[in-house]
Amino acid sequence: MTLLDVRDLCVRAPDGRSLVSGLSFSMERGDRLGLIGESGAGKTLAALAVIGLLPRGMSASGSVLLDGEQVLGAPGRRLDRLRGRAAAVVFQEPLTALDPLKRVGALVAEPLRRRRRLRGRALRGAVLDALSEVRLPGPERLARAFPYELSGGQRQRVAIAMALACEPALLIADEPTAALDTTVQAEMLALLDGLVRSSGMGLLLIGHDLGVVAGVADGLLVLHEGRAVERGTAAEIVHAPAHPRTREVVAAARRLHGALDGLAR
């Protein structure tokens, strides 16, 4: 069964403005798709529409089949069951994505308890496993920490651990490294890459940085003003961009790398 099948997705603002229009794409299990576009291109909205969580007042039309179930117009209870099992999300800002009053262990335990029905000692063990899986040092000590005691990178690892604990078929990562500094960024991408690959889940990676997204995703979809303007494999798009917007993005990425090379010389 196709993991995610989006057909002619349109998202409208409360005032009727079209924010995403005519977006279609599909993913098989284990696919790794990158969604690229500048800020305001509709990347995040498209991702939220996929799991039926558009902000209040926004409306979506078209069709979104997630793991074979229609998301658009589905009742809340069915969506609750679908979310987590079929798809989980890692957000851009790790600062606010964790409940500030809960210890890290309790945060990670929540999806484990619900999804795997673990309790007591087994649950505690699974929490520590989940924390070491995302390479957090000293999971026992970390499980007792509050989010404010962690660094940005550590928080994002916790957020990834929470998403993975749901054992989703599709992981949606919305600019998961944008708020982190560059050295942590590379580590985080490698981690995400490895975890997704080893568990065979699909990855929908959203970003504005071509270098970041193309490094992990196999296929790319370029969004511009709510429309898909180009799609192809990462190699195709990096080497032979067709759409003017894509060319700009590629050129910008090259300029950045060129500047770095120039400095290194």
């Binding site: 609750d80 957000f91 929540e110 619900r114 998403a163």
Partner: peptide
């Protein structure tokens, strides 16, 4: 409006559990 509520929603937490687990404690 906080991201952690959206995050909880995306992992399939139901409304009653969001209210008792996240909203009320906060």
């Amino acid at each position: 409006a906080q991201d952690y509520i959206t995050a909880a929603r995306t992992s399939g937490t139901s409304w009653p559990r969001i209210v008792t687990g996240h909203v009320l404690p906060n």
